[in-house]
Simulated assay, not measured.
Amino acid sequence: MKVSAILFSLLLACQVLPVTMRTAAAQADTTGIARADFADQFGPERLRTDYQAAVARLRMLEGKRLAYTYDYVTNVALALTGANTVKTQSTISYAYDEKGRARIASSASGLERIVIADPTKQAVYLVCPERKEILRLKGAALESRSAPKFPDKSGAKTELGEKLIAGVKASGTRSETTIPAGAQGNEKPLVHTSETWYAPDLATIVYMQMSMPELGDFVMHVENLKFGDVPASTFALPEGYAIRDIALHE
């Protein structure tokens, strides 16, 4: 089974790649910069994307188990000059229930962000504990737009078959793409390799390993997967927080 641009967009929708790369880079700098960089990830566009990902998951998992939790762990080795590297690890926690609600919790440099996407109320919330505030996006602003388009990069692809990862069946693909010398100002060809495993029972990528000489190595995988009832309290908004409606500027 090939991992299409749609599945890759789901990974991006969960912000695994953007948050990982930007947060890892920020952690190589000061704590204040890292906090600001992390906080900037969560604008209205991001919230709409998280909401649409929750709705898409419901469609893709029709007739399957909907309630489960897991952690998405990312290990990054950023390439620096002088054959040096900066290694970081980050974790994003996910929870889903039978109603299609999603809770995504992440943190960086002591700053926590919780996104709650609720298709039953046609709303998505961003919980900001450090200032006891909840940002809400709802209504027409959540309507779907055209799916993001990704460049069609030619390269060798190998189907890896199926295997169990984190206790669920996944289909794997290995790909290799070469960027010719001079295409991006590079003196020599750049070879990008990736190995991706997608689990239909979760409608998500459960393992991905990428290597890009100009950036470094990335390994992302699911841990602590648990099926079963997820309490409604998981998706409850904290009491005593101010709720502020936000809008998209398009």
Rank of each mutant, 00 (worst) to 15 (best):
A26N: 02
A26Q: 02
A26V: 02
A26P: 01
A26D: 00
Q27A: 05
A28G: 12
D29K: 12
D29R: 13
D29V: 13
T31S: 09
T31C: 05
G32W: 11
G32K: 14
G32A: 15
I33C: 15
I33L: 15
I33Q: 14
A34G: 01
R35T: 11
R35Y: 05
R35M: 11
R35Q: 15
A36V: 13
A36W: 10
D37Y: 10
D37A: 12
D37C: 15
D37Q: 12
F38P: 03
A39N: 08
A39R: 08
D40P: 09
Q41F: 13
Q41N: 11
Q41P: 06
Q41C: 10
F42N: 01
G43F: 07
G43V: 06
P44V: 01
P44A: 06
P44E: 06
P44D: 05
E45Y: 15
E45G: 15
L47A: 06
L47W: 11
L47N: 09
L47M: 14
R48C: 00
T49R: 13
T49F: 05
D50H: 11
D50V: 14
Y51F: 14
Q52I: 09
Q52D: 03
Q52E: 07
A53E: 05
A54D: 01
V55F: 04
V55K: 04
V55P: 06
A56L: 14
R57I: 00
R57L: 00
R57A: 00
R57F: 01
L58S: 10
L58K: 08
L58P: 11
R59I: 10
R59G: 07
M60L: 12
L61K: 02
L61P: 10
L61S: 03
E62V: 13
G63D: 00
G63Y: 01
K64N: 09
K64Q: 13
K64E: 12
R65P: 08
R65Y: 10
A67L: 01
A67F: 04
A67R: 00
Y68T: 04
Y68P: 05
T69I: 06
Y70M: 10
D71V: 00
D71C: 00
Y72K: 09
Y72G: 05
V73A: 03
V73G: 02
